[in-house]
């Protein structure tokens, strides 16, 4: 699987080239165009066993805003390609997993992953709830490429020691890092008066991918300006 990211940062699309019979799994609705002989299979999860577990996986992915179903694209006998895009203006980035690290991805940021990668869903617990962020994160393990997207641009920060990121601007991070939700400034008063509120303080060694804008924040800015439709 070869990934070429085109037209960054606002109009980004990814061109994915697959070898013969190679597979790539994407979120539903991301496909813009594909080779004529590409096969598409829709499933909740290709590797879960029991029905109960399958439903649970789908529902939690629904809560994670990634949609109940995933599409798996399989190239034909001579290989093929596939263009993936998103609805909103924004960036994409490709992260290569080497099998040793786990990648945590903000729910909603996932676009696609290579065959050797397994996607799980994790509950981040109360620290995530207090920070006003999502409770559920996606966890990528295995070996292969992962494609993520964000509303706004994505930039990596290599952390060695400590680094502070606004809780709304984390797109993904390596699980070699841990974070705690804390105040941004020296005191709680200055943190809130300064408008930063809660931030994530990362510690350890690894990479965090930040996004310059968050669609949720933009959406909440937009909503008060939208006029309700008249009841008919």
């Amino acid at each position: 699987m070869n990934v070429e990211i085109l037209h960054r940062p606002a109009n980004t699309a990814a061109k994915i080239t697959l070898d013969p019979n190679e597979e790539c799994t994407s979120e539903g609705g991301a496909m813009i165009a594909m080779s004529g002989d590409m096969r598409v299979a829709t499933a909740v999860n290709r590797h879960t066993g029991s029905l109960g577990r399958t439903i649970l996986t789908g529902v939690s992915r629904q809560i994670a805003r990634e949609g109940y179903f995933l599409n798996t694209f399989t190239a034909g006998p001579s290989g093929g390609d596939l263009y993936l895009g998103t609805h909103l203006p924004g960036d994409m980035t490709m992260i290569e997993l080497t099998g040793t690290t786990t990648l945590k991805v903000q729910s909603g940021a996932f676009v696609a992953h290579e065959q050797g990668v397994a996607m799980g869903i994790v509950w981040e617990g109360l620290k995530s709830m207090f920070s006003g962020e999502r409770l559920i994160w996606l966890e990528m393990r295995g070996t292969g490429k992962v494609l993520i997207n964000a509303f706004g641009m994505i930039y990596p920060i290599h952390v060695d020691g400590e680094y502070v990121v606004d809780t709304g601007n984390i797109a993904a991070y390596e699980a070699t890092l841990d974070y705690s939700v804390t105040k941004a400034g020296g005191s709680w008063v200055s943190s809130f008066l300064g408008g930063e509120g809660l931030v994530a303080r990362f510690s350890g060694r690894g990479t965090v991918w930040c996004q310059t804008h968050a669609d949720r924040v933009f959406g909440s800015r937009l909503t008060p300006h939208l006029k309700p439709r008249k009841e008919k």
């Binding site: 037209h7 539903g28 299979a41 829709t42 263009y83």
Partner: peptide, 28 residues
């Protein structure tokens, strides 16, 4: 894809462009 994939996979209908020539597609 199949009926199931098309309805639940979020891709719906696609346009098959067949032959030899250039096509222009938009990313959004």
């Amino acid at each position: 894809g199949g009926l199931f994939a098309s309805v639940f996979g979020g891709e719906g209908f696609v346009t098959r462009v067949i032959g030899t020539g250039d096509v222009y597609i938009q990313t959004r």
